[in-house]
């Protein structure tokens, strides 16, 4: 991040004969500056910054938060560059119900993802939701652990990514699965997802797959 280069050098000079940003006492400034320095790539010659950063990283967040002193933070020179970005949150679904519209949207999203893949690691913004789903059997004797192990491989949809799941205790010895996943809003219908979970194992084995939390995933 070239924008900060000058700033880092200045910091290096400052830290050359001092232990901390404000001298010899650990203050809030250190925490604040650290938060900004952390993500940067520090050139090898800035040894003082490196030494200071290594030291700072040994503190826990709680300790950093508890620090005293006013936060002046490089007297504002290190102000983060604020790039405005359009966050397209189409809350409460203004998505058009016409099939064509939905298909078009899905196409666009697909394209976005493909582009992102082609361009390397930088993922462009695609609206996603995070779900936690409870998967429930009919009887207490069903081997839910085996089902849990198979869910990610048996239930595959475009735009769906499984997280980890666990077995939870229901009333009367019933065990059910709680599993998290992320879905791309325009590609993956929550209804379809629940249906395909049931279909993957058969409705004589599983009775319900319910979404217990439905949350936006930035």
């Amino acid at each position: 991040m070239f924008v900060f280069d000058g700033c880092l050098k200045k910091l290096n000079e400052q830290l050359a004969d001092k232990a901390y940003v404000d001298g010899f006492k650990l203050t809030k400034n250190d925490g604040a500056v650290m938060m900004q320095v952390c993500p940067m790539e520090i050139p090898a010659e800035l040894t003082h910054v490196k030494r200071w950063l290594k030291h700072m990283q040994s503190y826990t967040l709680a300790e950093l938060k508890a620090l005293s002193g006013d936060c002046k933070c490089c007297s504002g020179k290190c102000e983060e560059k604020k790039a405005e970005e359009k966050v397209e949150v189409d809350l409460f679904g203004e998505s058009e119900s016409e099939d064509e519209e939905a298909i078009k949207k899905a196409e666009e999203t697909r394209k976005k993802i493909a582009e992102a893949k082609a361009a390397g690691k930088k993922m462009k913004k695609v609206d996603r939701s995070m779900l936690i789903i409870h998967i429930k059997p009919w009887e207490d004797t069903t081997d839910m652990a085996a089902i849990l192990a198979e869910v990610p491989s048996k239930v595959v949809m475009e735009g769906l990514t499984w997280g980890k799941g666990e077995l939870q205790d229901g009333p009367f010895n019933i065990k059910f699965i709680a599993i998290a996943c992320i879905i791309v809003d325009d590609l993956c219908s929550a209804d379809d997802l629940c249906e395909s979970i049931i279909n993957a194992f058969g409705d004589e084995v599983l009775q319900n797959a319910d979404i217990v939390t439905f949350n936006k995933c930035e």
Partner: peptide, 21 residues
């Protein structure tokens, strides 16, 4: 407190009305 950040997914409202959230 459980914080629900409302997603743009078209199935969300339904989940909010009939679901446990």
């Amino acid at each position: 407190v459980t914080i629900i950040d409302t997603p743009g997914h078209r199935d969300f409202i339904q989940n909010m009305i009939s679901g446990s959230s």
